[in-house]
Design a binder for these strands. Sequence first.
DNA 1: GGAGGATATCTAACGGCGTTAGATTGATTT
DNA 2: AAATCAATCTAACGCCGTTAGATATCCTCC
Lengths: 222, 222
Amino acid sequence: MGRRSTEAANRAPVNRQRTLEVALAVADGEGIEAVTMRRLARELGVEAASLYHHVNGKDQILDGLVDLVAAEIEPPKPSADWRESVSQRARHTRTTLLRHPWAVSLMASRTSPGPATLRLLETGIRCLREGGFSIPMAAHAVSTLDSYVHGFVLQEVNLPFRNESELAAMTTAIMKTFPAAEFPYLFEMTIEHVLQPGYAYGNEFDYGLTVVLNGVAALRDQ
Amino acid sequence: MGRRSTEAANRAPVNRQRTLEVALAVADGEGIEAVTMRRLARELGVEAASLYHHVNGKDQILDGLVDLVAAEIEPPKPSADWRESVSQRARHTRTTLLRHPWAVSLMASRTSPGPATLRLLETGIRCLREGGFSIPMAAHAVSTLDSYVHGFVLQEVNLPFRNESELAAMTTAIMKTFPAAEFPYLFEMTIEHVLQPGYAYGNEFDYGLTVVLNGVAALRDQ
DNA sequence: GGAGGATATCTAACGGCGTTAGATTGATTT
DNA sequence: AAATCAATCTAACGCCGTTAGATATCCTCC
């Protein structure tokens, strides 16, 4: 009967790339845990088992997602100033990862890097090497920088609050659970810094980035 | 019949703490994905549903695991030198997390911090404050440091190789997949640095830590 | 000592997951 | 028209976290 055939014809073809696009949309919209074979299949108008003709398994989908996100990270503009280009790369990495909050943990845990992931690394090393870093110092520097950026964003995307009042609610709840005498410095910082109007954890990023860049600059001239 | 009763008597009592101990052992031995309600129950000589009388759900077990690991991180020895104590705290954090490779991602993603987690944070802030950091500078510093440490260990525990020869196999495999002209700096660094005898990614930690400490020191005197 | 209630455990099931085997369909080529 | 081949389907397997409700064990109080 032709019904099935017209349905199939009206449907965009299922393939690896379309599957990844759908997976990206689902992950962004409802979190990475909503990315299931059955869900992607439904989204593509197909049954779960059919996906295995286009993709080796879920792991390959996750690898593909990571590389999609890596590809989205805008490379730094060429600059004579290594500090500027390295800093740009770090900031672009962060903003991109914030758009795909599920991606940080995934990037670290995936096993086989895709082309975009390698390109991102290449870019980082290039900025440093062209800025005068020796090979070993560039290795130290890129490891330090990426560790900082990934570590920061990892914490940032997992914060259990999304605005100042939720933060206030959460911190005061924690403070009520424990006697103040037990964590004097923590409570002091909470009250006099974190709970001050205008505080946002994300603002710490630039301070830390400057710290790391300053430290890394010393490596260059070593 | 008394058989069941003696069995129950011979069995160590099931409770929250024992459940967490078993969960820790299973996670260390076979990875966090082996920590399932059914598995923990089997390990405790009980059915899965029974666990729900001692624990609210799997999330609570994961929270408990994170705090167990946090409690294991040895606090730095009191020292007049903030640099030394902060550095010790960072190194202890790393070595502990390396003993429980599943813990890094979990620590970041869990929502409600336990007492040991808070204590660890308190310790970090105290080292800095007693070392002469103002409240805002201590906030910047502890965020930067912990971001770096967690970020580094996150990459470290997810490395898809465990020794020099596996690293060599993997890197050469990657290099064969892509044309050398595409990633010149990356390949250069791989060949002239990473593949040199004695290289181990873990050694980068101390370089980065020094970098961050140097950068953070400038915050203090700002 | 027995009754009653609390606590702990059990069995059974629900809906979901990734994955596989094997049948079926549809289009393309011979 | 027959044969081939890729794409899809149905059905199932063994896991998962969690819940409802029956059952067993233990402690307390009369």
